[in-house]
Design a protein around this nucleic acid. Structure first.
Lengths: 218, 218
DNA sequence: GGCGCAATTATTGGCGCCAATAGGCTAGGA
DNA sequence: TCCTAGCCTATTGGCGCCAATAATTGCGCC
C-alpha cells in the first residue's frame, strides 16, 4: 500500500544535464529558490544535489554566498583531456584482447550510429551515440574500476558547457576517429589503438572554440 | 560579537579517518545516532558527510536502511591499484623534467622521513610520511588535474581499512621502493621511473593479507 | 514445539522554519 | 559630487521535529 511513487530521481544528474545543455552561463550564480521552482524539488534536495555537483567540481561553492557554475579554465580543460586520454587509451588497449568478431561488428554498428547522428542528428543524439561507442568498447575491458574512473573523469570534463562539439567539421573528425580506432582494433595493434584513442580525445582540444571571452562575474 | 567559532570542520574527512583507522568493521552498519554522539555533530551534518562518503564509495547507502562500510572486494582493490599505478606513474614521469637538484634533495629528505617512520613511527606517521613523499614528487608535475585525479583515486582506495600495510616487511619494501624511484629520477630515466612507481604501488597488492575471511554481514 | 503474522520499536529521512550573513541602497556629511 | 556608514532586504544554511519504513519481538495458531 501507499505505493509511494517515490521516483528516487537523481536530481544532481538532472541539474548536470541542464548545465550541460547550456541552460546556465559559466560563472552564473545558482539561486536555490530558482532551482526549487525549475526542478519542482524541495530546498533540501536542491542543496544535496548542489553539494554533490560541487564535489564533482561542476559548480563552485562559496560559503554564505551560494553556488555558481564553474568556470572552464582553459588550461584545466586541456589537462583533463590529457587525463581522459591516458585512462581511455588504457581501457581500450586492455579491452583489445577480449574483442571477438561479434564485438567488432557491434562496435562497427555503434560507429555507424554515430555517423548517422553526425550527419543529421541533434547534438544530444550525437553525444549519446558517441558515448555509446566508447562505452561499448570499454565494456570489454577486464578492469571495470578503470572504466568507472574513466567515465567519471569524462563526465566531469563534460560538465563544462562549451566543450560540446562546436562545429560540424569537428563532429566529422570525431566520426573519422572512431573509424581509425576500429581499424586499429581489427588489426589487433595495441600501440595503434592507444595512439588513435589518444588522438581522438585530444583532437577535441584542437577544435578549441577560441573560448569566446567569458566575462568573469565579479 | 557572535565570533561564531564555526570551525567549518570537514566532517566527512573525520569519518573517513575513523574508517581508515579501523574503527569500524567492513560491512558494519553505521547508525546515525552513534555518529552524532561520536563526532558531536548534528544529524544534518552527519547525513551530509555520509552522503559525500557514499559518493566516494567509502560507504554504501541503502535507502531506508542506512549506510554501511563498503566491503573491500578483493578484485576491486587490485583493479584500483592498477588505476593508481597508471595515474601515478604518469604523474611521476611528467614531473621528471621539472626536477632540479634542490627538488631531488627535498625528495631524499622525504624518503628519509619515511624511513624513520618505518623504523620506529606509528602507522599514522608512516602513512603521512609516505603520502608526503609521493605528493612532493607529484607536485612537480605540470598537469595538476592529473595529480588531483590520482590523489582522489588513491584516497578512495585508501578508505578500505585493511589496505593498510599489514606487516613490517611490507613497510620496509615500501621504503626501498622510494629509493628505487629516487634513483630512477636521478638518472633521468623516464621508463625506469614509470616502472619503479608501478612496482611500488602494485607491490602493496603483493602483501595481500590473505584477506582474513570477513564474515559478510547478513 | 515450530512457524507465521502482526504490533511495537528503532532508525532513517523529508521538510519547513528561522537565524545568520552578505550585498545593495539610501541618506548624510565632507 | 563623491565617499562613507548604516540600514534593509534577499539569500543561504543550520537544525529539530515528525512521518515513513524496516527490523524485531511477542503472540496466537497450526
Amino acid at each position: 500500500m501507499t505505493r509511494s511513487p517515490r521516483p528516487r530521481r537523481h536530481l544532481a544528474a538532472e541539474i548536470a544535464a541542464a548545465i550541460r545543455s547550456g541552460a546556465y552561463r559559466s560563472g552564473e550564480w545558482l539561486r536555490q529558490v530558482d532551482l526549487e521552482e525549475r526542478f519542482a524539488a524541495t530546498r533540501f534536495d536542491i542543496r544535496a544535489a548542489l553539494a554533490e555537483l560541487a564535489l564533482r567540481q561542476a559548480v563552485e561553492h562559496v560559503p554564505n554566498r551560494g553556488f555558481r557554475i564553474a568556470v572552464p579554465d582553459r588550461r584545466r580543460v586541456r589537462d583533463m583531456l590529457a587525463v581522459r586520454a591516458l585512462l581511455e587509451a588504457e581501457a581500450a588497449v586492455s579491452a583489445l584482447p577480449h574483442l571477438d568478431d561479434a564485438a567488432l561488428r557491434l562496435l562497427e554498428a555503434k560507429a555507424d550510429a554515430f555517423d548517422r547522428a553526425a550527419a543529421e542528428g541533434s547534438m544530444a543524439s550525437q553525444s549519446a551515440t558517441n558515448l555509446e561507442f566508447h562505452d561499448t568498447l570499454y565494456g570489454f575491458a577486464p578492469n571495470q574500476a578503470l572504466v568507472e574512473v574513466a567515465k567519471e573523469v569524462r563526465d566531469r570534463a563534460r560538465l563544462w558547457p562549451l566543450v560540446l562539439w562546436p562545429s560540424l567539421r569537428a563532429v566529422r573528425r570525431s566520426a573519422e576517429g572512431h573509424r581509425v580506432i576500429l581499424a586499429a582494433l581489427r588489426a589487433g595493434d595495441a600501440a595503434a589503438v592507444a595512439a588513435s584513442v589518444r588522438a581522438h580525445i585530444l583532437g577535441s582540444a584542437a577544435n578549441d572554440p577560441a573560448c569566446s571571452a567569458e566575462e568573469a562575474e565579479r
